[in-house]
């Protein structure tokens, strides 16, 4: 199937098998999907259904056993690890369930990392402005360990948007947060996404959260349900 110019993510018949001590375990059994630019989609399914594995492969963090993944028309598979890293740095943003901030960097430094990795200088102002936007203007020099869970996820949101990615992947972004904190993080996520015009791919088992996206993909036993 040819890509339309507006397709940002295209997944073709991907399979992923892990070798375990008890034999091969096929987690993804042939999944195809596509996401249009600016669209917000969610992938939902029960635990162990393969949704995080799918997200990892879509974002180039893992490789499928077979099949192909394209972002903005570029196939991720032939790129090599360094190529995929550079590609992620330019095109992709991430938000994780457990925040995944670099523990040895302050909040401001964490946000600056994606730009600094590509050699940009003088990015402090942009990072400060983003952190102020997420409500952490006063906590720039705090280390992750000095921040609450909600605050850590705000830093992660600011970091996800600093490189103005074309597509943002979020893995259970509220999974480690309490109710009210979750609501504010979700609000912030959608608001930042809307302003930046980014495509959002969200993995969650929270149906209420999924309903806020344009489309929902349901996954069960490694296959997409109709």
């Amino acid at each position: 199937m040819p890509d339309s110019p507006s397709t940002i993510l295209r997944v073709d018949d991907i399979r992923r098998t892990y070798t375990t001590t008890h034999g091969d375990l096929e987690v993804l059994k042939g999944i195809s999907l596509s996401v249009e630019t600016g669209e917000t989609v969610s992938i939902i399914g029960p635990s162990g259904s393969g949704k995080t594995t799918l997200l990892g492969i879509c974002a180039g963090l893992d490789l499928p056993t077979s099949g192909d993944v394209k972002i903005a028309g570029e196939s991720l598979l032939p790129m090599g690890e360094d190529g995929r890293a550079a590609f992620r740095n330019r095109q992709v943003g991430f938000v994780f369930q457990n925040f995944q901030l670099v523990p040895t960097l302050t909040a401001l430094e964490n946000v600056m990392v994606p730009l600094e990795l590509r050699g940009e200088r003088g990015v402090g102002d942009r990072a400060t402005s983003l952190l102020t936007r997420v409500g952490l203007g006063e906590r720039l020099d705090h280390y992750p360990i000095q921040l609450s869970g909600g605050e850590q996820q705000r830093v992660a949101l600011a970091r996800a948007f600093i490189n103005e990615p074309k597509i943002l992947f979020a893995d259970e972004p509220t999974g480690n947060l309490d109710g009210s904190t979750s609501d504010s993080i979700v609000g912030l996520l959608f608001s930042l996404n809307r302003d930046a015009g980014t495509t959002l791919v969200l993995v969650t088992h929270n149906l209420e959260l999924a309903k806020q996206t344009d489309r929902i993909f349901r996954i069960r036993d490694g296959l997409l349900e109709d």
Partner: peptide
């Protein structure tokens, strides 16, 4: 974990 995270954010192996 720190290195993998940097890798996720786009760090080159050389970096």
């Amino acid at each position: 974990k720190e290195s993998v995270l940097l890798r996720t954010l786009g760090a080159q192996g050389r970096q």
